[in-house]
């Protein structure tokens, strides 16, 4: 699992690469949860995540709760078909803002600013 964090304007862009399972999810959570500060804008790029188990869903749930509690914004981009299906079956998908690409995801934040 590779985690890259960069800042574009006032948006924190987190790019994950690799499978998110019960072995790797705790590391991801440890790295990214501290980024959920008050009013933070977080874009999670999952373009290079081919697999996510329920451990990954729990990580997303924690991040969602943290950003919501702190009036932040969270956008997921690059969800593969398989992960999208898992999120739909568990009822997660409807609660997240999702975009197909990084470029589109960055635009969503701008739009919510106006």
């Amino acid at each position: 699992m590779n985690i890259e964090i960069q800042t574009i304007g006032d948006i924190q862009v987190i790019a994950l690469a690799g499978d998110v399972d019960a072995n790797t999810a705790p590391k991801v959570q440890q790295e990214i949860l501290p980024l959920a500060l008050p009013q933070s804008k977080i874009l999670l790029n999952l373009t290079n995540v081919p697999y996510m188990s329920s451990a990954g869903l729990r990580m997303l749930l924690s991040l969602y709760r943290q950003t919501t509690a702190k009036q932040g914004q969270l956008v997921l981009v690059g969800l593969g078909q398989d992960i999208r299906r898992t999120m739909a079956v568990t009822g997660f998908l409807n609660f997240f803002t999702t975009c197909d690409s990084l470029e589109l995801g960055l635009t969503v934040f701008k739009r919510e600013n106006h």
């Binding site: 188990s53 329920s54 451990a55 729990r58 749930l61 709760r65 009822g91 997660f92 609660f95």
Partner: peptide
């Protein structure tokens, strides 16, 4: 339960739910 808002969802049990389905 899967239709409930994420704020109210318990963290456990999802794995078995997914496995069975």
């Amino acid at each position: 339960l899967c239709q409930q808002p994420l704020e109210q969802r318990p963290l456990g049990g999802l794995g078995v739910y997914l496995a069975m389905r």
